[in-house]
Design a protein around this nucleic acid. Sequence first.
DNA 1: CGTCATTCAATTGCGCACAACTCAATTGTG
DNA 2: CACAATTGAGTTGTGCGCAATTGAATGACG
Lengths: 174, 174
Amino acid sequence: MTGARYPGRMNTPDDDWLRLDQQICFSLHAASRAFNGVYRGILKDLGLTYPQYLVMLVLWEHDELPVKKLGEHLRLDSGTLSPLLKRLEAAGLVRRERSARDERSVEVRLTEEGVALRGRALQVPRRIASSTGFGPEEVRALRARLDELTTALDTAAARAEPQGGPSTAAAERP
Amino acid sequence: MTGARYPGRMNTPDDDWLRLDQQICFSLHAASRAFNGVYRGILKDLGLTYPQYLVMLVLWEHDELPVKKLGEHLRLDSGTLSPLLKRLEAAGLVRRERSARDERSVEVRLTEEGVALRGRALQVPRRIASSTGFGPEEVRALRARLDELTTALDTAAARAEPQGGPSTAAAERP
DNA sequence: CGTCATTCAATTGCGCACAACTCAATTGTG
DNA sequence: CACAATTGAGTTGTGCGCAATTGAATGACG
């Protein structure tokens, strides 16, 4: 039935690929948002958003970090982290202070309150697990699969980037 | 070593779960953004963002659809779709017109240009596939896994918020 | 027939993601 | 040492995602 709307075009491998693409695109997109949604409900109690929770997870492991390192852990840049960290600071969970050693760098560290929040966060994964019915092995397996995908995609992005040059006149550096 | 920052607390299963949670949260979040990033680069040629591409994929399959149905396919509400569709309309790819049968409903349909864009989009999945090195079976397997996850998460979310019933009914998809 | 609840799209407000840019601090190179 | 290049954080602008609200059209019910 699909081919009928594109007369003169038989079902080619391209068409099949496009449909398959729809499936995987949609699945990953939907999974990510569904995940986000479940966490949103549970994290509301802690007053955190999902990305803020990710930042806190990193800080609970290394409780003094420059913004740069934080960004490397999370693959996020200052454009995302700066306002997010300001909100965490306004919530009293972290403090930001410029490094004395390098005035360009800003050190992020947990406040007492930020450290204390970890205690309440300990129940989060259990609640997630019980919500999803996924066990540790399933989680680990899925994670491995996703990391494979991310690695492949990052490599692809890095390969595509240097040449870049789509139709729009790329800004060549003088 | 990690536990040292939280004196008096041994490494309990809770701590392990929190670390595991960090892994899976981060992996899914990163995979989603990496995926988005690769598509961003490829879709730039078509003048589409990734969510806009998802909308077009649906419209190429059913080229006349009310916003409501579109939202059910993509698990997106009007708050996201309305401005997105306006941009697609401004780009000349779709037309939006209120249904004569039900004045509340808005029908979205492809323009000639929107239909024509499909021809150029046919190469997208192949470029993605060649970028990632993932074959059709791997894609299908991952998709199945993600759909499982989404189903589990949706069920969990529905259970957590029984009153605000998810207007987006559980979707039946191919 | 009139009232009331429901449905659908649109809007508002907030937060995240990312590109492009600014600006100061640091590093390097002659 | 001077000066250009690089680095790190922040800002701006655009777009997505979602909750909450608005407003109009529809449908149900007494």
